[in-house]
Design a protein around this nucleic acid. Structure first.
Lengths: 211, 211
DNA sequence: TGTACATCAGTGAACGCGCGTTCACTGATGTAC
DNA sequence: TGTACATCAGTGAACGCGCGTTCACTGATGTAC
């Protein structure tokens, strides 16, 4: 039976949320459309009233999950912009690693995205750029302008790797899983410091004392 | 019909090679046992004479692919041990990124491994440690002993992330894909240098001049 | 060395199951009068 | 405002297909005598 426009819009969001979480948790190939629809409180047929194919659902669900994560970060930023070091502490935390189904889809599905179509690849690239921009802003006044983007790009790539590795080895060797996060964080932090030391660069912002 | 012991052993290796390459290329959930068997020149039934389940095949195929890659590196090392910078140049190269089905299974399947069982997780942890040890050796005489492992762990984690990201965005934005590799390599290299500068550490080895 | 026979790697049909997608149908919604 | 009706989100059966796994069978291999 037909439902109201508002209800239909709600159902669409419910489908995206369910798809997004399930894909992160069990992989894109590991979840069927029927399960996504059921988790959203619908039958599989209804899904095709909202998305033309599973591929289309994957692309939109990836973007939905990414935006939800970024919104949280932006909400934090409205209160106070976190420093680069604070971003790193969050990126490489055990909490981030253990938040699989609600965490960043880039990290949860990194190696699977390479096998998806152009639409998903483009969404991934956009998402990557957005996170890089956020990190670049946190480096203003800390690192010379010419180095900021390079450090931000490397930080995001390293984070995606460290979280994926930490999740992969966690079942077999939790100590190693934690070491990977901490070692990568420290190393990126050190790379940031080497770009900072020995020059004056930013207009006026002070370099905050970091451990 | 029964085959000779030698032929059976060859078939087992053919199954592992086919499984290993197909899983890297199209994902663990994206390849069925029948396709693996066919690629090895057998029928699916034969696969179960060698492996009790697909799960067992996955774990063994992962290790097979990893060992094949490590053997190549060891062959190179027998001629001349590459420097840390040379390892980085290889880790973050476009050639490495484009070698999906014969490249390191850790990189090809990073985010999928987290969803596999304990056996695969343990194999991943072992593989990670082996690569870290290789990198640590290349840092002897370059970086103080206490920092070597930290840098090696971070380098491998960062490489896995950078390659995964580069593959994910390549279809949509190849310039970004190349930037990710280069930026991450430079940043890890900088982190290595900051640990080197301003101290004497290694017994007697000279620090090679690197660009 | 030659013969008889047990072994077992490999074959291919069959199992139940879930996959992505289609479609005739339902019935509340939203609109035209 | 009340009535008639077109719209379309959602239902659920059905489609062909491939999945992982099992198993009766085959026949060359390897072994015991």
């Amino acid at each position: 039976m037909r439902v109201s426009k508002e209800k239909a819009a709600e159902n669409r969001v419910a489908l995206l949320r369910a798809a997004s979480q399930l894909f992160r948790l069990r992989g894109i190939d590991g979840v069927g459309v029927a399960e996504v629809a059921k988790a959203a409180g619908l039958t599989h047929g209804a899904l095709y009233a909202h998305f033309p194919s599973k591929d289309a659902l994957v692309a939109e669900a990836f973007w939905y999950g990414f935006e939800k994560n970024l919104e949280e970060d932006r909400a934090v930023e409205r209160v106070r912009r976190p420093s680069f070091e604070e971003h790193l502490a969050s990126f490489f935390s055990i909490e981030t690693r253990d938040r699989l189904e609600t965490g960043c889809p880039m990290t949860a599905s990194a190696s699977e995205i390479a096998r998806q179509g152009n639409a998903v690849s483009a969404r991934f690239a956009d998402a990557f750029e957005e996170i890089v921009t956020m990190l670049e802003e946190s480096l203003e006044g800390v690192v010379p302008e010419t180095k900021r983007r390079r450090l931000a790009v490397a930080s995001v790539a390293a984070q995606i790797g460290a979280i994926a590795v930490s999740r992969a080895v966690a079942k077999a060797d939790n100590a190693l899983a934690e070491e990977v996060l901490e070692s990568t964080r420290k190393t990126i932090s050190a790379a940031c410091k080497v770009e900072t030391s020995g020059r004056r660069h930013a207009p006026s912002a002070p370099t905050p004392g970091s451990s």
